[in-house]
Design a binder for these strands. Sequence first.
RNA 1: GGCGGCGUGGCCGAGUGGUUCAGGCAAGGGCCUGCAAAGCCCUGUACGCGGGUUCGAUUCCCGCCGCCGCCUCCA
Length: 458
Amino acid sequence: MALHLYDTATRDVREFRPARSGTASMYICGATVQGVPHIGHVRGALNYDVLRRWLVHNGLDVLLVRNVTDIDDKIVTKAADAGRPWWEWAATHERAFEDAFTVLGCLPPSISPRATGHVTQMVELIQRLIDRDAAYVSGGDVYFSVTSLPDYGSLSGQRPDEVQQGETAADGKRDPRDFTLWKAAKPGEPAWPTPWGEGRPGWHLECSAMATTYLGSEFDIHGGGVDLVFPHHENERAQSHAAGDGFARYWLHNAWVTLSGEKMSKSLGNIVAIPEMLRKCRPVELRYYLIQPHYRSTIEYSDEALAEAAQGYRRVEQFLRRAGGEVRLGEVPAEFAAALDDDLGTPQAFAVLHNTVRDGNTALDAGDDTKALEFAESVRAMVHVLGLDPLSKQWQDAASHSGEARALGTLVDALLSERVQARADKDFTRADAIRDQLTAAGIAVEDTPNGPSWTVRD
RNA sequence: GGCGGCGUGGCCGAGUGGUUCAGGCAAGGGCCUGCAAAGCCCUGUACGCGGGUUCGAUUCCCGCCGCCGCCUCCA
């Protein structure tokens, strides 16, 4: 079965056929860098990272654009409140987002274009819209005329007559539903020169301009959170279609991470920021937690569920450790591929992963190392696609190569040697004392047929 | 008011018109172990409520209840 994806625009699961064979182009709405990232922000990025990895696994050359919206009302307002330059405020939070994406194992995008760097392209797009009578100048503002596009509202399922743009109904609008492409500058605000005067971009314009700049007038996948369906993506689509661009061919939207049943948002004060999360678990465990549920299902965050996920990941990790160090990347099972092909069915994919882990453990228990290795290679192929490969460079414990780690290893090994001797001598009191001592130090000891094994526990 | 989503066993979380319907975590029993740990095996008999369609519905239809989201910045 070929990859199928749920397309918001058509409201059904469609076979994914890239516009250009052998390639896939993705535009992901990244952050408006007005604050610190929380796990909801990161969830979306993770979902699209898995999709991207799956496309790559299937031999496609993927171009991934993840934008940074570094100019908008909130950035200007918040920076002013903090008494900092708007551009410093934006840059600071852009870095926080980048760090969060990186620490959770998102592959870097092909490019992370910033809105402020693409004013030229925005001006050009506005001009095309004006030329086609889809936009008009009013004072120093430029508005998009919603009535110029007959199927306006079709992406989000809104009826045009019911639609309201959140923006204040400015005086210059011909129709209250029209939205702003370009805002005239107010004194003291950041501004760029245009044929219509000094100003700054409206919210939706930058994505249309940047997507088509890098991916062409038509590209394959446009992704973002469900809240972006309307008005952001509806308006992006409108302005690009009105300009004559084919624009996105598949619209994907990921669901929320909620807290106590409510959407995480700064205004509710219920965000779980990334640095805070990483005190509770390892980054790879957070990644596991966030990508296991289906991307279109809401995740109701809880510490307990996160801990369960971490436990589940450790099971996989433990199996690969048991199977030995020389586990190559094998092939993913057909059921795993079928699961991901079915609208990125990660829950089913994880089920296949765990079934394979069990089969592998069973083989190990039976002493069939050859078979176990085959399962391990298959497991590794799956976790590789999911970005969860414990043997990958990303997740190799960085500290394991440090001087401290070597010193620790030497000491633990010495104690374990002593314990092996004690056990051989049937001095179990001594053997257990050593184990207790290590346990108290946060080191878990396991006896295996090949001798003792130890890991540092949280 | 317009549009949309959700309610599954102790918990998380899939899924399907029908004897055996994921997977994980936790729990109990067993195997293994000097004892553990890890691993493996077994056990739980669930689908918000009320109708309807059907030989049969958790799965389809209708109504209801509850929760949530978008329509205002938002991943």
